[in-house]
Design a protein around this nucleic acid. Structure first.
Lengths: 200, 200
DNA sequence: ATATTTTTTAATCATTTGATTAAATCTATT
DNA sequence: AATAGATTTAATCAAATGATTAAAAAATAT
């Protein structure tokens, strides 16, 4: 029988192919046939395991959103860590994750632009930016400046290089290998810069 | 006769509709029928004035790339301005332009990711980031740090809020009106932060 | 006014694309 | 081995989509 115990191998092959193709080309530019080919399976299997392109996409999108916000959530809510410690953790962990998922930010942000409903917001991203312990600490340290500015600065310094990556490489500014070194350097530099901004 | 003297009104209506729809939904998600409807014209007219969806898109894309890089080009190559003056000019002019074209960065960056050939690079964006006078000044002031870090920091602090705008609004962090005030505040804050980074 | 050229429209084409169906193949239980 | 259920495949469908065509309408020239 094995009613629910599907092969898992095939299903996962499709899901992994979907991750690759969706992330690379976005929802609209992705053809279900592209995913089938990438997975090495018959097109009909995609609709057998997942009901539709849309359903498969929602699955991938949820994963990606969770990954993009999941890294910072536990850090900014840390009860015992200082501002500096949080900044160090965020810069390090975020850049490490982004080095393994360079296309993630541009994918998630442009899909949310195309279709805000895709942003299920299970991670309650809004709260991270307005009600976290990190925000409270920032408000204490710099009461005269909207703490959201610092949140955006920190995130932008980590994320933006990866958003600009296609342009930087296409314009011949950096090779993929140089991009990696560049991002690694920023792990420590961002901490230093952030401290300077807080003390200005 | 007037062989080349087309009505201009109709042609421009289509181009303007294309700007709106392409920028909002991206190339792949845009239907030529969407553009025709937005322009209030018959679908066939689109192919009469422009030869294809692709051709029309290239036209719009060129404009948008030029706009995104055109603001900074003359500033970073300024012969007589100091680092501080350049930073002030970039922050002010760039944010002013982005407030009028909030969707521009996400559109251009994601289309270049989808199809790097679209990046004709007439603006020689690479040179701006590696060979401009601004870069030389940065290298003199901070010889130990790759000046590209500072270029990326400056651009990210200006651009990133607009890239994150769909998420911030969708997550209820800010209203469009608050986004405007937020961006306006950054015109002066970014200068202050950048100076602090340079002196750290 | 008439003729000619340009612009606009409705109808249609060919291809692409997401999805379905019916049959074939594989797997496991008896 | 035989049966039943799960998985996979080839073929096909219907709708969407970029593009074309032939004719009508409007503008311009003679």
């Amino acid at each position: 029988m094995t009613p629910k115990n599907k092969d898992a191998s095939t299903e996962e092959k499709i899901k992994e192919a979907a991750r690759i193709v969706f992330t690379q080309k976005g929802y609209s530019a992705t053809r279900t046939r592209d995913i089938a080919e990438e997975a090495g399976i018959n097109l009909a299997l995609l609709n057998y395991y997942f009901r539709s392109k849309e359903k498969l996409f929602e699955l991938v999108m949820s994963e990606k959103v969770a990954k993009l916000f999941g890294v910072i959530a536990p850090i900014v809510n840390g009860e015992t860590t200082s501002i500096e410690e949080k900044v160090t953790l965020i810069a390090d962990n975020y850049i490490t994750m982004l080095l393994q998922n360079p296309g993630l930010p541009l994918f998630v942000l442009s899909e949310i632009r195309n279709n805000p409903e895709h942003f299920g917001n299970k991670v309650q991203a809004g709260k991270l930016l307005t009600e976290s312990i990190f925000v409270k600490q920032l408000k204490e340290r710099k009461p005269d400046i909207n703490p959201l500015h610092f949140m955006i600065n920190l995130l932008s310094m980590c994320i933006f290089p990866f958003i600009a990556k296609p342009v930087l490489e296409s314009a011949g500014v950096m090779t993929p290998s140089q991009m990696n070194d560049f991002a690694e350097e920023r792990k420590t530099l961002i901490v230093q810069w952030f401290k300077a901004m807080m003390n200005s």
